[in-house]
Amino acid sequence: GAEDVGFRVVTEDGRRVEARRLLVTTGLVDELPPVPGLAERWGREVLHCPYCHGHEVADRPIGVLATGPLAVHQALMWRQWSDDVTLFLHTGPEPSAEEYEELAARDVAVVDGEVAGLEVADDRFAGVRLASGRVVPREALVVQARFTARSAVLESLGLTPVAQEMAGTVVGTYIPSDPTGATEVPGVWVAGNVTRLTEQVVGAAAAGLMAAGALNGDLITEDTRLAVAARRA
């Protein structure tokens, strides 16, 4: 904050921008499991969301890389898009007997052993390479990224990211806000993935609109209060 202006933002090149209110839409960072080759194919054949990318890989051989307890759920979700889905147990927990039955009932193959890397041919993902040396041909690979809010500027204002859990598993961090995007710091709003990790483009845009309306209303209230005070003076 700064006297009279509300907030002063300093950019990396030293430029200063002053404003009475802040709307922060810095999004999140996708932190990928430490498997060689994942980052290079991320957003191409390495995917995470069936609602974002399912249509593009429909009916193709899909792999799911297990790194936590949500992997079985992921495999069953992606099974909607293809009848050729393989779950690589990798560093994830051993599925329960009930989960094994569910996977078998949906014809999802399960492969033991840690994944060592990806096979790429002609700049296309071609398969999963296990530590044993075995290669399982696949055309898409699903991973569970950790969603970490880009919160540095908000932390500088005293806001603290909190853990986001899904089915008892921490999947990332976010900055809490009310339904309009207002944070605990007066005058600071957030919208998009920095506050709602699983939000897609349409929801993030709607959240930006909601926050802008609330922010504008707050400014109107302040302008009116100052005008009344000036008139009385």
Rank of each mutant, 00 (worst) to 15 (best):
L157R: 03
V9R: 05
A214S: 04
E222F: 11
R225L: 11
D107C: 03
G6A: 13
A149Q: 06
A211T: 01
R231Q: 05
E114Y: 08
A104P: 09
L215M: 10
A2L: 15
C52R: 03
C52W: 03
L103Y: 12
T180M: 08
E155Q: 14
H53A: 10
V85L: 11
R44I: 02
G127N: 08
V142W: 00
E45M: 03
T173G: 07
D223F: 05
Q144V: 07
A152F: 01
R20C: 01
V135F: 12
Q80V: 13
L130C: 04
L159A: 13
V228Y: 03
A229F: 02
N193F: 10
D112L: 13
A75K: 07
V143I: 08
D122W: 08
S132R: 02
Q144C: 01
G217R: 14
E165S: 15
D83L: 09
A39W: 03
L118A: 03
V115N: 01
I220W: 07
R134W: 03
V194A: 04
F125L: 09
V228P: 01
T180S: 13
G213W: 00
V228W: 05
I175C: 06
T180I: 05
A116E: 06
A205H: 00
G68P: 00
F7G: 07
V10Y: 00
L89C: 06
G213F: 00
V153I: 13
A126F: 00
E40A: 14
A211S: 00
G6W: 07
L70Y: 00
A105S: 15
E40M: 05
L65F: 12
A109D: 12
P95Y: 11
P95I: 09
V188N: 03
G27P: 07
G192H: 05
D223L: 09
V72G: 00
A152D: 07
V10M: 00
L209R: 11
G27C: 06
L209N: 07
G43I: 09
L159N: 11
G92E: 02
E114G: 14
E139V: 04
G203N: 04
E199A: 15
T183E: 08
A131G: 05
P69T: 01
V135G: 11
P50F: 05
A204W: 01
R16N: 07
R146W: 05
E18D: 13
V35A: 08
A182F: 03
E3D: 15
A214T: 02
V111I: 15
E114F: 08
V120T: 12
L23S: 12
L130M: 09
A39C: 04
D30C: 04
E40T: 09
D84E: 15
H53G: 03
S132W: 02
V29N: 12
D84N: 11
H90I: 09
V46G: 08
V110T: 11
P93K: 10
T224D: 09
L32R: 05
S82M: 06
H48P: 01
V115A: 01
A66P: 07
R106S: 13
I62V: 14
A207N: 02
A212C: 00
T183V: 11
T160N: 15
E119G: 14
P33R: 06
T148C: 12
R41Y: 03
P36K: 09
L159H: 14
A152V: 02
T221G: 14
E155K: 11
